[in-house]
């Protein structure tokens, strides 16, 4: 897969580090995620991606758990 291609976070394998492009989760959640550090261009490392379970990522030095639905709405490169 082309590493520059935009894809949902849910498609990223554990151990990979990606850059956030955009979030499309509706106003309230967008803003909530932004306050937790999920802003454009931030680096996200996927720690675990246990299909079909939730997602664990590291962002701005803190560890965050995301629901799978959420991870599908976060676009990264």
């Amino acid at each position: 897969m082309d590493p520059d291609q935009t894809r949902p976070l849910s498609a990223v394998k554990p151990g990979q580090t990606v850059k956030l492009v955009a979030i499309d989760a509706g106003r309230g959640l967008n803003s909530r995620l932004a306050s937790m550090g999920l802003v454009p261009d931030v680096e996200i490392t996927v720690l675990s991606n246990n299909h079909p379970g939730p997602f664990m990522i590291t962002v701005k030095n803190s560890r965050v758990m995301l629901g799978r639905g959420m991870a599908q709405k976060i676009l990264v490169t």
Binding site: L33, M36, P54, M56, R63, M65, L66, G67, G69, M70
Partner: peptide
């Protein structure tokens, strides 16, 4: 309704 996609910090 949709299950709210959830976000939660995992503290050290």
């Amino acid at each position: 309704g949709e299950t709210t996609p959830f976000v939660m910090e995992l503290p050290p």
